[in-house]
């Protein structure tokens, strides 16, 4: 009995230590649940933003292509008109030249206007750039949380892992609601807000 006592104490000590280790592991895993849940919640938002970028870029590109096709047609028509002017000049048909010149001036004005419409449509670049920054920021957050989890599993202290993450994180500026088509408040409602102030 007395011979077994030290062994019994040793086993008891080992079991107590083992239980403490198991408790620590369980509590560590519980701590890891939050970043995992938060990360999984951010994935669909990032995916949605990326889908939106793809859709809005395509829509804006089509708008611009429509205008470019119109401009190309107008330039083709203008070329034909100039060829006609050459013939009229040869034949001395000054009245026809003048009438055709008016048509070509009008066409040039429409072409110029279409070019301006393309320029205005390029505002989509600022909006999709903000959407991309939002998506990138969400993905970076997920990456950092996963790095924290990996760090925790390796026994790295949280503040050390967070410090590494903060150093790597880019300072991104964006409006999370930036949208090419969906304005949360339309211009007339904004005008009302400012009119009430006045």
């Amino acid at each position: 009995m007395s011979e077994n006592q030290p062994l019994q104490f040793k086993i008891q000590e080992e079991i107590t230590e083992l239980a403490a280790s198991v408790n620590e592991i369980v509590s560590r895993f519980r701590e890891l649940q939050n970043p995992l849940r938060e990360s999984s919640e951010k994935v669909p938002i990032a995916t949605e933003q990326l889908d939106k970028i793809s859709e809005q870029t395509e829509a804006a590109t089509h708008q611009m292509l429509d205008r470019v096709e119109k401009i190309v047609q107008q330039v083709e028509d203008s070329k034909k008109g100039l060829d006609e002017i050459k013939v009229y000049t040869k034949d001395g048909r000054t009245g026809d030249i003048s009438a055709l010149a008016d048509v070509l001036i009008e066409k040039a004005s429409v072409t110029c206007n279409d070019a301006y419409i393309i320029m205005d449509a390029l505002q989509f670049q600022d909006i999709t750039s903000q959407q991309m920054n939002h998506a990138a920021s969400l993905l970076e957050d997920i990456e950092f949380r996963l790095q924290s989890i990996m760090g925790a599993l390796k026994g790295q202290p949280d503040d050390e892992a967070d410090g590494d993450n903060q150093q790597n994180k880019r300072d991104r500026v964006y409006d999370p609601h930036a949208d090419l088509f969906d304005k949360r408040t339309d211009q007339s409602a904004i005008d009302d807000i400012f009119a009430r102030k006045g």
């Binding site: 301006y116 205005d120 600022d126 909006i127 949208d179 304005k183 408040t185 904004i190 400012f194």
Partner: peptide, 27 residues
């Protein structure tokens, strides 16, 4: 700006802007 949430517009008004346009805008 792209910010079109009403609270943001009110905040800008309080900060002192004279008027506000949401992007994309027309000329």
């Amino acid at each position: 700006t792209t910010r079109s949430v009403k609270d943001d517009i009110v905040e800008a008004l309080k900060a002192g802007v004279n008027n506000y346009i949401v992007k994309p805008f027309t000329p």
